[in-house]
Every structure is written in C-alpha cells, then in structure tokens.
Write a protein that binds this DNA or RNA. Sequence first.
DNA 1: CACTTAGTATAAGAAATAGTTATAGTATGG
DNA 2: CCATACTATAACTATTTCTTATACTAAGTG
Lengths: 322, 322
Amino acid sequence: MTTKPDALPFDLRALEIFLSVCEAGSMAAAARALSLTQPAVSQAIADLELRTQTTLFDRSVRPLALTPPGGVMRQRAAALLSEARQIAPLLRETVRGRLALVRVGLVDSLARALSVPIATYLSTRAEQVSILSGLTAAHAGALLTRNLDLFIGVDDLVEIAGLERFELVSEPYIVLLPPGTPAPETPAALAALAKRLPLVRYSARSKTGIEIERHLRRLGLTIAAGPAFDTPFGVTEMVACGAGFAISTPLCLAEAALADHAVAAAPLPGPVFARTLTLVARRQELGMLAHDVSVACRHALRQSTLPKLRTAMPWLGDSLTS
Amino acid sequence: MTTKPDALPFDLRALEIFLSVCEAGSMAAAARALSLTQPAVSQAIADLELRTQTTLFDRSVRPLALTPPGGVMRQRAAALLSEARQIAPLLRETVRGRLALVRVGLVDSLARALSVPIATYLSTRAEQVSILSGLTAAHAGALLTRNLDLFIGVDDLVEIAGLERFELVSEPYIVLLPPGTPAPETPAALAALAKRLPLVRYSARSKTGIEIERHLRRLGLTIAAGPAFDTPFGVTEMVACGAGFAISTPLCLAEAALADHAVAAAPLPGPVFARTLTLVARRQELGMLAHDVSVACRHALRQSTLPKLRTAMPWLGDSLTS
DNA sequence: CACTTAGTATAAGAAATAGTTATAGTATGG
DNA sequence: CCATACTATAACTATTTCTTATACTAAGTG
C-alpha cells in the first residue's frame, strides 16, 4: 500500500547518512560531519525507518543506541555502500573483451577436483576470479539474483527459462561404511544395517541430502534421525570415525580426501540411483565462456579425478560417465 | 571537481532504470515498463554515464547494445540491487540478541580444519552463517569494508586500529619434497636443490607467498621462477607429482590432504621462520562472539589437526604451538 | 531511394524530494 | 532544578526528477 511491492526501500544517500550517525554516535554530530543540518539527518533516519518498517535507533538513551535491527542494518548498509563505491572505478578499468570479474559457485563435492582447473582457466579470461564453494541451493539462488555468473552443482534448474546448461559428469550414489563393515547387498540388508549403525546424512539444506531422503522413502525405508552435515568432508569423516554409515557418491568421497581405506565404499543396493553435476549460467551473458569452462572442467575430471575413482572402485563401471 | 571524492556515484533508482533498459532492450520500452516517459529514462542513463564517466550503451545500433563497461555495470548493478532489496525483510526478521548473518573469511590453509567447527559453533549464535575461503589479503580488505565480520588468516593488521585479534596457532615453515628426495640440511643445500628442481611457489597475491620470498631474499637465495598457486592444494599437488619442491607449512600440508607419503616434509634449514594464524574482527561490534569463535577454533585444532601433524612430523617439536 | 516506424536527445516547465530555518520537546549531568 | 546538548516537527526553499514538446537518428519497406 504505502509503496509498490518492488519499490526500492531506500536509496544509497539514506544509508550513507545512517552510517554516519552510527559512527558519530548522534544525529547532530553526523549532521556536522556531513555538512547538513540536524533536521535533515533526523528526517532521513525517520524516513528510512518508515520505509523499512523498523526502528533502527533507541532514542530513549543517550548516546543513541542501535536496536538489533539497527545493528543488522549497519552491517548490511556498510557492505552495500562499499560495493557501490567500487563499481564506477571498476567500469573505467574494464578492458575491451575481457571480463572484470567472474564469480563461480562450485558445489562442495567438486571443490578439490575443480577449483584449481577453473581458477587456472578463468584467469586467462577475466581480471578477477572468485570461486565460492557451498551448497547448490545457495548458488542457484545467487545465480538468479545475479550474485553469481555461473555455478556447478546438482540442480540444473530445468524449471527456469533463459539459462544454459552443460552436463559435466554423472555418478551413482554409493554406500560408505566404516572399514570392516560388510556391504549390504539388498535394500533389506541396508535397512538391517540402519538398525545397528546410525545413518550419517547430508543435511536437508543440501540437494543431495533431499534426493537421498526421497530415494529412501521410495524404497520404503524409514531410518532414524542421525547426525547431518552440509559437506562431504563432514559426512565422510564421521563414517571414518566409525560413527555411522552414509549414502554418498564417488566424487563426494574423493572430495573428502581421507586416507585410503579410511572408509569402505560399496554399491548402493536397489534400483539405479544417480546424480548429474551440471554447469548452469544465464544464457547470452557470458558468450562462449560458460561452454569453455565446462570443457575445461570435463577435461580436468577425465584427466585426473575419474581415473582415480575407477581404480579405487572398479565396480563403478560405466555408471560413472562424463 | 565534478563531485566530492567520496560522493556516491549514483543512486539505486538509476541502477534500477539501467537494468530495466538492459532487459527491455530499449529506453522507450524500459520507460513503458517503469511507467515513466522516454526522456526520463534517457536522462537517467545519460546522468549515470556522466557520473561513472563511462559509456554504457552503444547508441549507434538498434536494438541498443551494451558496451563492455555496460556489461560489467549490468552484472554489478543486478547484484547490488538484489542485496539492497533483501535488507528490509532481513531487518524485520531480526530477533533480539541473535545475529542475522555472520560472514567469516577463512584462509585456505585452515579451510578443512576449521570450516566444519566454525559452522557448527556459529549456527548456535546466528541465523545464517557464511564462510568464505580464500586469500587473507582479500579477507582483510573485506573486513575493513565490512563485507566480512571476522577473518582467520596470516595477517593480524597490526597497523589498523579498532580491531581485536586472537592468536590461534603458530607454525614453522617447512620444505615439501617429492618422495625419495633427500632433505636439504643447510640453506646452501636448499640453493643446490633449487638448481635441480623448480620451486613451486605460493603466488605473490598470497601473504604466505610474499613472506616466503622475503625470507629467501634475506637468506641471499635467488631462485628461478617456477609455477605458482594460490592454494595449498595446488602447491602440494605439484610437489606430489614430482614437478618441483616447495616451501610451505604443516597446516597447508594438512589442508591439501594428499595420501600419506605422497610428499615428504622436512624442516626448513636456516634461521627460525614461522607464521601465526590470527582471528581478526572489528572491536565492539560482535560482543564476545569473536573471542568465542577463537576458543572454538583453538579447541578444534588441538583436538584434531595438531596431534595428526605432530605424529606425521615429530621433529616439529614445540615450534608448532596453539 | 523516399518514406515510415520506432527509437534517442535536448529544452523548458511542473511535480516531487531533499534540504533549510525556526521552534518545541527530551535525556543527562551538575 | 536547571543548563546543556540533543531529537522531532512544522513550514518554507532549493534541488532534483520527471513530464511535455520537439528535433534528430537508425533500420526496415515498397
């Protein structure tokens, strides 16, 4: 009502004034620092509070105190302003045909395998390269809000138009067991195993974790809650400690990079259950760059990571494809 | 002259209009989409170009084309606006006493050792936790511009006031060699080794790389240029391949997590040369949080990483301290 | 090629916004 | 309780942003 739903809640000038008040400790002092009058600052802050529908300062004490939302605002406003100030110089530095900054999201399971190849390849194509590891869900959101230029992950965002996708590798899910534990040969054996040993999960924040839960439900298996981790390292380490077993993948196992035989790997019994890692970018914004990165990644995987996995787990056969 | 040096180069409204033009493909179409008149859009874009001192669109073709700086502007403007729009809802969600978001920079050499403990600990203290691995230089800059709340790295920023620092661990530099290579016992032997085998370096962008170069100069050693990497994994992997030797540290070796005996480690001959990893935060903004994180980190290191290093490299003695 | 169409640029005035001065009210310290 | 230094509100002014009006330009069409 007050404003259109997509209207901007403030402008940068208001944030600048707000931060000045935070630093100066009072509106009057901020006004002096900014060469404004005190009412101008007072109004700007009041307007900012109105637009964000929050109270930023506690006026009942002096010197002025930040409320909890005010503290968050200070944190975010400072970040936003510093980014804004970087933009203009960056534009002027931009050299024809060379990107100033490429931001890549890389799913944790490929961080070790691909961060070096991606960084090496992109450094020939961009001034600055930023590679963030993490969960695909976060990266997918960041791509859509343009906080990332491309990501590699386990979700190809089929439902979103205007993206381009390059499949890098497909791999089956596997079972990870503490050394010496016999491998379950059937889904029933898996269920029996889960009675003796907790299942170490990927957290429900990760796409892999969600997929695994769904698969277990399809198999009709209900397995008691156990520890959950976001990263392959966390899950694998827990299994290595003997604290449980896990459903994971060959690349996740490679990512954890534990000592040989620290955990045992076995095929996942039951119907075929696999995942595909895909490079996703917005169409027509990076030219051929996304395609070229996908080629470099596939090359790096075929040269180095996949042969190692095939040696360590010969039973993978051609379920591991690139 | 045109504007004060610290003046804002633009307003969020201008970026909104700019992005609308990018999407619509023409200023006239953008004006319709925004319920403005065409001259309003034309003026806003002209003003934005004037303030940033760039040309964003190529008007000599239709439909309007983005110039290279225009492309960068699109990328950055979209990111900035999406962040700006997130702020107000975030403020309203803020619960008393609990931080909405804590952003941590973690030096690559501790990424494996500490990302899980930090994430686990902070999830009890904040709604959302963001951990970025990378180079300390980038994190130090990000802390000062408030894009990070705290970082753990190899620079304690002594020259900057208003920060608080917590030392986590000190470790000596060591030599990494391909398996079977005899360890150099003296600086002279190190120089001789460098004649036979290239030195794999940490890049000059990393603080560690800079420190190592300085130390070599102090020793009077000039070593021919070889390959350089930003990350411990890159450097260690090269040595494991037999492509050279490296000067590194125990924690970097642990971070690379190669198989046992994939590389040989030996003391660095010559005078004592060590580094200290420190947690740095802005004073008085996070309360006790920075201190509490440092305690959690030191605990995690003493429990898990340091004992392993002492076992693998018993000659470290008490040069490795926490 | 003239000619239409859909677009961009510029000038001048209207509307909205951000600033000012003036003044009343409030927290804190002597 | 009073002095001081601050914040809030009202009314006015200056500046900026947007509109109308009009001239100019790129690209397609017969």
